[in-house]
Amino acid sequence: MAVQAQRQASAAPARPRPKRSREEEVLVWPDLVFVEFISAVLFTITFTILSVFINAPLLNRANLNVTPNPSKAPWYFGNLQELLLHMDKAWGGVLLPTIFLGFLAAIPFIDRSRHMQGVWFGTKYSARITIITVIYATVVIFGLVSFDAGEATGTERLTRWIPACAESAEDVSWPCLRDDVGAEHLGIVSTKDISKRLEFEVLGVKWPEDLDHIAWPFNDSIGDFDLGGIGLGSIHGWGGEHFNIPSIMAEQVIPLTLTIVVFPGLIIYTLFRIGWVRTRRDVLIVMFTGAVMAFVTLTLVAAFFRGQGQDLIWPWKIKVDEG
């Protein structure tokens, strides 16, 4: 008895099933079984016809010595391959996708209201904010992708006003971009430039050269402790026992804050101020829609806009070099 009472106290509150009257019900046979049967038949026919006319690809036998260019992941992992181009590999390939899955799994534990379940777009403005977020996320992702391919898309022109560094780099206190010797001056071509081509000096500290080799602060206290040993060495920019701060900024901090904090925050805050995002459900709708659209957009870019050397080009210009 006591155990049972305890159990009842700790278990989730009893959830009375909503009553429904017989008139609201239909019989599974025939109403549902027939719908299922018909859709199964339709799909079988469709796919059989499809398979008669379109053959699955079979290229040459696998050969480790012949690398096709571009090599692409299966399309549903193209999004990860695409992320790798823009940020640290560990983040783009593993950590960010894990966070995405964790976020998905956490959704029902964040939005626990039972309000309006089982109807499409339950809250007042949910359809509207979904559409807005779809457009927003697509534009933002395409924008970021093109910014990171500044030479191909011309977005480097936006930052050409940043002066070129003088060849004899004596005084670089003012931010400047270092160009290849003899090359035309370019603006910021990709985020990586922030750690490679951008130079400036604050309080006598030069970016990037004074900051790319900061000793791991506990080096002395833990003795010969090698960060590579616990795997962090594989996080780009954490070279051995040293921090490479410019590279951490360019490949981890900037891309991650933009994609996880700044752009989602901006749209959620704006919609909140307008008054269209009002509940947790609404916030989740924006986050879920944004994440899914980012996933979809990245997949499309990877599948249709990446040519040889993973350069950003138009779909009809992609040529595969079989190696």
Binding site: N63, P68, K72, P74, A90, G92
Partner: peptide, 17 residues
Amino acid sequence: DQLALWAVTVGHGIGGS
């Protein structure tokens, strides 16, 4: 085939990171 090998090689790289 080549498609299989190199697609999985990309995944291999991702796993390695």
